[in-house]
Nucleic acid binder design. Structure first.
Length: 423
RNA sequence: GGUGAGGUGGAUGAGUGGCUGAAAUCAACGGUUUGCUAAACCGUCGUACGACCUUAAAGUUGUACCGAGGGUUCGAAUCCCUCCCUCACCGCCA
């Protein structure tokens, strides 16, 4: 949620930024500001009246103590009258406050000035492309054939147990997942991130805090009886660790990492896009999250991008980094860089990580604050990135390193997997 | 799931209708003292949203907030209702 203060200071600037995100309803800004003015007006009126009620009530107490019953009774009448005239003001005030809040959450985060213009994924800017293209052996096949051939992921049985889009990892496939998770977590903790293993379901307040609610409830699995949501990413529970907390400035940056399965209900598209491990309802991911001083968030964003780049390099996969354009960015993000790895056998790029700076958009909802050196309360900035999403990494590892009857594994993984080949 | 006890400021914890936005202690911060450390002493020490004043900061001031939401009352941390959560014991269970 944007800070009202930002809208007040520069409504025109806000509209211009929103345009970069291709957010059409810029009139919302004016609506919100006028609601804010109304709110202030009603609050002033309410406060003044309530002050009178409070002081008169105090007088009643004093009169009663002195035994001046009659005068006390008169005052009571006075207060009763005041209160009944106050009633409608109070109602209007709270109605406006709610309306203001409802409108404010409809505004997406403002894109930073580093965000390239553009509307669709085609407009994203390739910032960097690196890594060696593999030379595939003759008869190389996509991962969905490989996993079948080596019997390491079984979608049919996953569908039988649960439904389509739920993979059953088996044997070396399951072990490779475990090795990757372990490797990623170790890589992150070595860079100073604290490891967490969070709950995989969250309550409404947490889903709201990171921006899944309102609006995106359809993308999450919902436990109706208990009103819990299966997490779509560990970003949700991890960022919410500090919800409604005032942290110490010297404790910043707070660096956290977590593994979790991620659950996505998203209505799938069809065909090649969703084949095999490309898109599933449940997948594993290791995430990094940081809460930082607002002055540092862009510096930290770059640091996180570098961190994830190193991780990808260690996997020896060809990759590229994209700066997402205004139209392709998520609602809550101010700057997003995507990482894609090249899947040789599919001849396409697959997104494996997304590194975003949310500035104060999430923390304003969650009220994650600190007191700066001058004693002023400030919101921290929050950032997160995947490091990494497993299924597509696995797909690329399998495809790009396939040999005639085996798959070679990069050295970094071999250590964790206990072998330099899959079989 | 059952029974019982609870949820108060950074922490501990007092507070059963007006003098309580909240004692006390600890922590933290500023200062005095000090060869250094410790101790002692003095002071500061919640948040949000307004108003006034100001270029701004500061300052003055109002309102709200003692788990959440309702209610009773002239007046609620305190009484009542609903919900949530925590702890203990029992039950069930990996």
């Amino acid at each position: 949620m944007l800070q009202l203060q930002v809208l007040r200071q520069n409504p025109q600037g806000v509209k211009e930024r929103l345009a970069i995100k291709h957010f059409a309803e810029t009139g919302l800004v004016d609506t919100i500001l006028s609601l804010d003015d109304q709110r202030k007006k009603f609050q002033l009126e309410f406060d003044n009246n309530q002050a009178k009620v409070n002081s008169t009530s105090k007088e009643i107490g004093q009169l009663m103590a002195k035994g001046q019953k009659e005068e006390a009774e008169n005052k009571k009448q006075e207060v009763a009258a005041l209160k009944s005239s106050l009633q409608p003001i109070a109602e209007q005030l709270s109605a406006i406050e709610k309306q203001l809040q409802d409108e404010l959450v409809k505004l997406p985060n403002l894109p930073s000035n580093k965000v390239p213009a553009g509307k669709t994924p085609a407009d994203n800017v390739v910032v960097k492309e690196a890594g060696k293209q593999p030379e595939l052996p003759a008869g190389a096949v996509p991962h969905w054939d490989l996993i079948k051939k080596y019997d390491i992921v079984d979608f049919e049985t996953g569908a039988k147990i649960t439904g389509s889009g739920f993979a059953l990892y088996k044997g070396k496939g399951a072990k490779l997942q475990r090795a990757l998770i372990q490797y990623f977590l170790d890589f992150n903790t070595a860079a100073g991130y604290t490891e967490y293993l969070p709950p995989f379901m969250v309550n409404e307040a947490s889903a709201y805090g990171t921006g899944q609610l309102p609006d995106k409830e359809g993308q999450m699995y919902h436990m109706q009886e208990d009103n819990f949501f299966m997490i779509p990413t560990s970003e949700v529970p991890v960022t919410n660790i500090y919800r409604d907390e005032i942290v110490k400035e010297i404790d910043l940056p707070i660096k956290m990492t977590a593994y979790s399965p991620c659950f996505r209900r998203e209505a799938g598209s069809f065909g090649k896009d969703v084949r095999g491990l490309n898109r599933v309802h449940q997948f594993d991911k290791v995430e990094v999250v940081q809460l930082v001083h607002p002055d540092k968030s862009y510096e930290v964003h770059q640091e996180m991008v570098d961190h994830i780049e190193k991780l990808l390099q260690s996997l020896e996969l060809p990759y590229r980094i994209l700066a997402l354009c205004g139209g392709d960015m998520s609602f809550t993000s101010a700057l997003t860089y995507d990482f894609e790895v090249y899947s040789a056998a599919q001849d396409r790029w697959l997104e494996v990580s997304s590194v975003s700076n949310f500035e104060a958009y999430q923390t304003n909802r969650m009220k994650i604050r600190f007191k700066d050196s001058t004693g002023k309360m400030q919101l921290t900035h929050s950032l997160n990135g995947s490091s990494l999403a497993l299924p597509r990494i696995m797909a690329c590892l399998l495809e790009n390193n396939q040999t005639k009857d085996n798959v070679n594994l990069p050295a970094a993984i071999a250590t964790y997997f206990g072998s330099s080949t899959l079989l």
